[in-house]
């Protein structure tokens, strides 16, 4: 199978997965034992006011009609097939716009944290593998245990205490920018990129400072499992026949290490995909601690207020991103290990 056919097949499967998920979420949230109208209409609604609120959000219609509107197949409706995610029942704003505001914050955090964690963990993992049981290996093992021994929120709060309250070397956990600073005009939604585009170096520096602790927390917690994974794979690969042969053939150690890394990275790439989706979905903890109004907080707010359009759209978008990352990694995997496409 060519790489193009492989990608097309994966795209088709992803689309079906998304559709199945959209349907599952649609029905599951309606099965929950709560009444979103009660929250919308406020206290002591008359039966007429209650009915009026219910009508205004379309919950008085049969579920099949609601589904038709949600998908955008009912006559005169606009739904996900047209790219319309609906309006939030809580804020009255288009959900698509709200997600566009929140998502870049999370993606920026997760992507930078991921890139840094990977850049740090891969060489450390390799160093550990070169001499198992050595000082580097023992230190990395102790660190992995230490970092993984406490939940992420605990490390986040501890870092806030140490680096802000005690040492005062980072800004307070007040979001992406100093609240008194005027943000750069939003073009992409990513503060880092928008600051550069606008030439706002003060905003760029401030944004990076505000990102430092959340990224540090993420990297601190993430690096442990990545180091372990790379180390284990490298140890296994370094003991394999082809490495033995390479050594016997007198190849230089750097070239052997490169070959070994390529083999060791394939499973790590799979881990990367799984971790990225997991962290994107669970970003709410870090977002809450550092007051970052990202997609995680938006999702929790939507769920707690039973804002069906927002819940449906958030799950759909997070899943779509995860599927996209999986697809991207599958392609990388196929390049690294051509056996995948056969």
């Amino acid at each position: 199978m060519s790489t193009g056919a492989f990608v097309l097949r994966r795209l088709g499967v992803s689309t079906l997965q998304l559709l199945a998920l959209a349907l599952a979420v649609f029905f599951l949230i309606r099965a929950l034992p709560a009444d979103p109208v009660a929250r919308l209409v406020g206290q002591n609604p008359t039966p007429e006011a209650y009915a009026s609120a219910k009508r205004s959000i379309g919950l008085d219609e049969p579920v099949t009609t609601q589904l038709g509107r949600y998908l955008g197949v009912a006559s005169g409706s606009s739904g996900i097939l047209q790219g319309d995610l609906g309006r939030s029942w809580v804020s009255g704003a288009p959900v698509g716009k709200e997600i566009r505001d929140a998502l870049p914050i999370t993606i920026e955090l997760v992507t930078i944290a991921f890139a840094l964690a990977f850049l740090l963990s891969v060489p450390i993992g390799m160093m550990c593998a070169v001499k198992p049981g050595g000082a580097a290996d023992r230190s990395a093992f102790a660190y992995s245990l230490f970092a993984g021994s406490q939940p992420e929120f605990w490390w986040g709060l501890l870092f806030v205490y140490v680096f802000f309250s005690v040492l005062n070397v980072v800004p307070p956990p007040l979001g992406r920018l100093d609240p008194m600073l005027t943000p750069p005009p939003s073009v992409t939604g990513f503060i880092t990129i928008d600051s550069i585009l606008a030439g706002r170096w003060d905003a760029l520096a401030d944004g990076l400072q505000h990102l430092a602790l959340p990224v540090l927390t993420k990297v601190f917690v993430l690096s442990g499992p990545i180091i372990k994974m790379v180390r284990q794979n490298m140890v296994r690969v370094l003991q394999s026949d082809f490495v033995l042969y390479a050594r016997a053939a007198g190849l230089p150690p750097t070239r052997i290490a490169r070959y070994a890394l390529r083999s060791a990275l394939a499973p790590a790439i799979a881990l990367f995909g799984a971790l990225y989706g997991y962290i994107l979905g669970g970003a709410v903890v870090i977002e809450t601690i550092f007051s970052l109004g990202g997609i995680g907080q938006y999702a929790v707010r939507s769920i707690l207020s039973f804002d069906y359009p927002a819940i449906q759209a958030t799950i759909l978008v997070i899943t779509a991103i995860s599927l996209f990352v999986y697809l991207l990694l599958d392609i990388v995997h196929a390049v690294v290990d051509p056996r995948v496409t056969h």
Binding site: A205, Q209, V215
Partner: peptide, 20 residues
């Protein structure tokens, strides 16, 4: 220290109190 830790991701040289 602030530049290393706070702005340590990049732009250490321009890190500092923003104009607010």
């Amino acid at each position: 220290v602030g530049r290393v830790v706070g702005g340590g991701l990049a732009l250490g040289a321009v890190a500092g109190t923003p104009a607010v």
